[in-house]
């Protein structure tokens, strides 16, 4: 899988941070979970999606979920997006040429016929799972949208670090990267009042034909 462009990564990060700030009211009692993602060789793994599904209580509902995935220079930007179930994503076409965006993923199957500029409608992702977007004309345009039921998720930075503030409790850890091959991480964590360090060692297979399965 192709590396996310730097720009896409920053936007993804900002988006993740933005989402996180929308959830600010439960600031009191939010414990940071310090996540470090490294390869076996010790190199930081940027772009890893970490999802924490609360096990104790159902997650708080999403508020005005909305995302944007732009099409710039025959690329989806951001390449990887994680949204709460029910999020409507706008897919503007910033290119001079038209694109036809589609997905055959079972989580969301849609087809935006050739358009330029703003699409007629937003696409609402209302089922959890992985949705792979592609352009009918351009085989190389791929975007991943991970639809989750929890507000607690983030993308590892370029330095291989991610901090998530979560209330204390038990959480299921889900990792995903398009090129994920194997990961060593606890399946569950219990967050207490203290900062939790969550080191993750994983290996990527950039050559893999198919995308890693959604956890």
């Amino acid at each position: 899988m192709r590396r996310a462009t730097l720009r896409g990564a920053r936007i993804a990060l900002l988006g993740a941070l933005g989402l996180h700030s929308m959830l600010a009211p439960a600031a009191a009692g939010a414990t940071p979970v310090s996540i470090t993602a490294r390869t076996v060789a010790g190199l930081p793994v940027a772009g890893l999606i970490v999802i924490l599904d609360p096990l104790d209580a159902p997650p708080p509902p999403a508020v005005h979920p909305h995302a944007v995935i732009d099409q710039v220079h025959k690329h989806f930007v951001p390449r990887v997006t994680v949204v709460r179930t029910g999020t409507a994503i706008t897919l503007p076409n910033s290119d001079q040429i038209r694109h036809q965006v589609y997905s055959f993923s079972p989580a969301k199957t849609f087809n935006l016929k050739l358009y330029a500029g703003s699409p007629a409608v937003d696409v609402v992702f209302d089922k959890p799972g992985l949705v792979v977007l592609g352009c009918n004309i351009h085989d190389t345009m791929v975007a991943f949208v991970g639809v989750v039921d929890t507000p607690f998720f983030g993308t590892v930075s370029d330095s291989g670090e991610l901090t998530l503030e979560v209330p204390a409790g038990r959480y299921r850890v889900r990792l995903w990267h398009p090129a994920l091959s194997a990961a060593t991480a606890p399946a569950e964590i219990t967050v207490s009042a203290q900062t939790l360090s969550l080191p993750i060692t994983l290996s990527l297979d950039t050559e893999r034909e198919t995308v890693a399965p959604w956890p």
Binding site: Y102, F104, V132, L133, G134, C135, D139, M141, V142, E209, T210, V211
Partner: peptide, 9 residues
């Protein structure tokens, strides 16, 4: 050849 949608399926 591979059938891509958009990844080879």
């Amino acid at each position: 050849v591979a059938v891509r949608s958009p990844l080879p399926v």
